[in-house]
Write a protein that binds this DNA or RNA. Structure first.
Lengths: 209, 209
DNA sequence: AATAAAATGTGAAAAAAATCACAAAAAATA
DNA sequence: TATTTTTTGTGATTTTTTTCACATTTTATT
C-alpha cells in the first residue's frame, strides 16, 4: 500500500491512459503521462518503479498493458455503488452528475431527514434517513457521500458507519470522528476558495510589481 | 509565503477559531486546534512558529488575537466575488450553496453557452459566455469556478484568463494550461471517489482478516 | 555490424514536511 | 515565596517525498 497522493497520481495516470486508448494510442512515454497528470516524468517513472511496472527502454509503455497493470494495482475490478446523505444543492448535483458512470461509479440512492425531499420514484430514489440502514444492508453498499449541513455531519456519519459503510466522501467542514477502519476523504469547498484568494493575493504582493 | 498544505491548515485553524468564538471561548490550546483541524499539536505550534504567531506559555492562545493574526496572515480583509462558468448540476449547486457567505465569499454570476440556461433575473444571474469578459472587467472579478464538461474546460479557462481572472477552482479532470501567475486548484470528484474505493479495498485485504 | 539516439529504471542526493523532546515561561498551588 | 504543573516555542532529528543523474536497454541509422 502507498500513501494517498501516490494513489491519486496513479488514478490520474489511469484516467489519462483511458483517454489515450479511446484515441487509439498504442504507445505512451513518461513525458506524456507527466503532462497529463501535472507532474514530472521522473515522478511518473518513480511511481511505476515502486509498483513494479516496467516499460520498454526507448520504446516507452504500451497503453493497454499499462491500463491493465494500473487497474490491477488500483484493484477496481467492478462497478461500485455510493449513496448520498443530504439531498440539498450539492447532494442533488452529485446524484444527477453523469461523469461518474464512465469511472464505474454509480450513485444509487439519496437520503434526507426532510420529508419534502423524498422521491422514491426518481431516477435516483430519495428516502428517509431512517431507511438508510435497511437499504445499505440489503444492497451491501460500502460507500457514501456526506452532503448535509455541517451541524448534522457527525450524526449522518454515525448512521452510515453503523450500517456498515466503510468509505466516505465528506463535503462538510466537520472533522468526522469514527472507527479507524473507515476511510474518510474531505472536500472543503470554503477552504479551497479561500486558499485561491490567499495565493492570488500573495502573488499580487510579490510578483505584481 | 508557504506551501498549499500549510495554508490549508491555517484556514482550518481559523475556521475552527471562528466557531469557538461564536461559542464565547476566550482561550484555546494547541491541542484543541489540533483536534479541530485533524493534525497534531506539535504541527499547530510549528505552523504558528513559522508565521511568528505566539501565545502564552501555560496559558495557550487568546481566541480573538489568534483570529486577528491568522486573518492578517491569510490576508482576507474583505469579501470576494466569484463567477461560475458552466451552469450544469455542479455549477448550479455552487451558485445556490449558502455556506460561502459566512466565509465572505459570494458567487455573483454564472455563465454558460446553452441559451436555455440564461436567466439574468435570477438571484445569481446567468449570462451567455460571450458576456463574461464585459462582466468580469466591469465588476473587477478576479476569481472563478470551472464547472463545464471536461472537453470545454480549457476553452472556458482561456476566456476567463483573457478577462483578467487570476484564480480558478477547476471541477473538471482536465489539467488546465495557462500563465504561471494564475492560481489553479483542482477538485476531481472521480478520483476522490476512486481513491476511497482503493483504500477500502486495501483495508479489506490487509486488516480484514 | 558498428554507432548514435532516445527512453527507461533506479540508487543516491536533496528538499520538504513532520515529529521529537525539552528548556523556558507562566500560572497554580502549597 | 517556593514549588509544582502545564503549555508554549523551537532547534534537532527523523521521515517522507521529490528530484537528479546516469548506466542500461532498445530502436534507429549509417
Amino acid at each position: 500500500m502507498r500513501n494517498r497522493s501516490c494513489v491519486m497520481r496513479l488514478l490520474r495516470y489511469k484516467n489519462a491512459l483511458l483517454k489515450l486508448k479511446a484515441l487509439n494510442f498504442v504507445r505512451v512515454f513518461s513525458d506524456n503521462l507527466a503532462d497529463a497528470a501535472g507532474v514530472t516524468s521522473a515522478q511518473v517513472r518513480k511511481d511505476f518503479s515502486i509498483f513494479g511496472i516496467t516499460g520498454n527502454r526507448r520504446g516507452g509503455y504500451q497503453v493497454g498493458d499499462l491500463i491493465e497493470n494500473l487497474s490491477h494495482i488500483l484493484g477496481k475490478d467492478k462497478d461500485y455503488e455510493f449513496i448520498v446523505v443530504g439531498v440539498g444543492n450539492i447532494g442533488k448535483a452529485l446524484m444527477r452528475y453523469d461523469g461518474f458512470e464512465k469511472s464505474g461509479i454509480k450513485i444509487s440512492a439519496g437520503f434526507d431527514i426532510d420529508p419534502t425531499k423524498y422521491d422514491p420514484g426518481a431516477a435516483v430514489a430519495v428516502y428517509d434517513l431512517s431507511k438508510l440502514n435497511e437499504y445499505v444492508v440489503k444492497n451491501k453498499i460500502r460507500f457514501g457521500i456526506i452532503a448535509v449541513p455541517e451541524f448534522a455531519a457527525q450524526q449522518a456519519f454515525e448512521v452510515m458507519i453503523n450500517s456498515g459503510i466503510k468509505g466516505v466522501l465528506n463535503f462538510t467542514p466537520a472533522r468526522l470522528k469514527g472507527p479507524e477502519d473507515c476511510i474518510i476523504n474531505n472536500i472543503n469547498l470554503e477552504t479551497e476558495l479561500e486558499s485561491i484568494i490567499y495565493f492570488v493575493n500573495v502573488a499580487d504582493k510579490t510578483g505584481g510589481k
